[in-house]
Design a protein around this nucleic acid. Structure first.
Lengths: 195, 195
DNA sequence: CGAAACGTTGATCGTCATCAATGACGGTGG
DNA sequence: CCACCGTCATTGATGACGATCAACGTTTCG
């Protein structure tokens, strides 16, 4: 549920790997603050040093859909930078978040000249794509209870960090429906006093 | 609906760009034949030269979910190769398909040494991720009619190529529901005699 | 001053009604 | 025979409304 990327985290935790790039610096975000704004052009990428952020889309009908929760090592904004497009989703800090900020040009420089960095980026993208595709398929083909069950089993501890609204948006359902389903599951399943 | 990638297509249409790699060769697939089998380890990637293929997941409950339809220039199998994993989805030729086949090792060589190729791959991944994410969000937050409407408007001509079952699986709905919705829409909307 | 009483607010749940999507079954037409 | 549709029943998810309860701050009274 919360994605991380150890490879990138390790890479950036060694300052030597990037200190020659001017624009790279640490940035702080308070809970609720946005790292990326939906509809804006992408001028930089972030790699999360610590904290948790949610990536979500606000649809025209007002509904929110949570693409993913990101934490240490995850790459943000790379899609927009690579394709020269505006961002289709927003990223907001849920906890205090610290990132490594990288300007667009430096990001491209690193891709071209810093050994292995392009592979790391490609792998990060491939993993995201894989996870997204698997999740999509599951959520489309199974009812709420099944998906919620899976989610709770995987991450009942982590789930405490999120508001129920966020979890509902992640599952693509209403808060009301989430509560209803949780209620039903408590009767049947193992997790009596979770969440 | 049918994705293409001109950048990669152009690159591979110039034979000089890749003729020094031993494993690269053209491969042919007849309609119904599989380019990638779900659950198998990824040992190669394909770039489609011509034809149309569908990428889909068979879930444990027997349902099929179509991730995407791919055509000229699209990259297949890169996720598995980059992450050293088994494929979570299958790819099957819908029409006659011709691909550029690239063995795993050559793919990595090209990423490292052939100028600009790694950027092309990253961009291809980024585009796929973007499209997938946008589609997911839409399908989760809008009813069938809305999504189907959008799909028909974008690609009423292309749609003739596919079986209705595939379109239904792409939308994550039943064939029955697809027919029902189409019927309803014909009464209301512009496309009287489509599909 | 401090404690009890009050009102406000937000989150959750019971209930009922509604809509969206599916399933079943039989009929029709190419 | 198969693809499609009419019909009806059913399940899944949502929406609306009111009741409840806990949290919190404010008021009131001894």
């Amino acid at each position: 549920m919360i994605r991380t990327n150890n490879e990138l985290l390790n890479f950036f935790s060694r300052r030597d790997n990037w200190k020659r790039y001017d624009t790279i610096q640490e940035k702080q975000f308070k809970p609720g603050q946005k790292l990326i704004v939906q509809g804006k052009e992408g001028r930089c990428v972030h790699i999360i040093k610590k904290g948790i952020a949610k990536c979500f889309v606000r649809e025209e009908n007002g509904k929110e859909f949570v693409q993913e929760f990101f934490s240490a090592g995850e790459l943000l904004g790379e899609i927009e930078v690579l394709n020269n497009t505006c961002s289709f989703s927003a990223v907001m800090a849920l906890t205090e978040v610290v990132t490594y900020y990288i300007g667009k040009d430096d990001f491209y420089s690193m891709m071209q000249s810093t050994g292995g960095f392009n592979l790391m980026v490609s792998r990060a993208l491939a993993t995201k794509l894989r996870d997204t595709a698997i999740r999509t398929s599951h959520q489309q083909t199974y009812p709420i209870a099944h998906n919620l069950n899976k989610l709770v089993q995987l991450s009942s501890k982590q789930a405490e960090m999120f508001s129920k609204k966020d979890i509902a948006d992640y599952l693509g359902i209403t808060l009301r429906s989430l509560n209803r389903t949780l209620k039903q599951m408590k009767g049947i399943d193992i997790f009596k006093e979770e969440m």
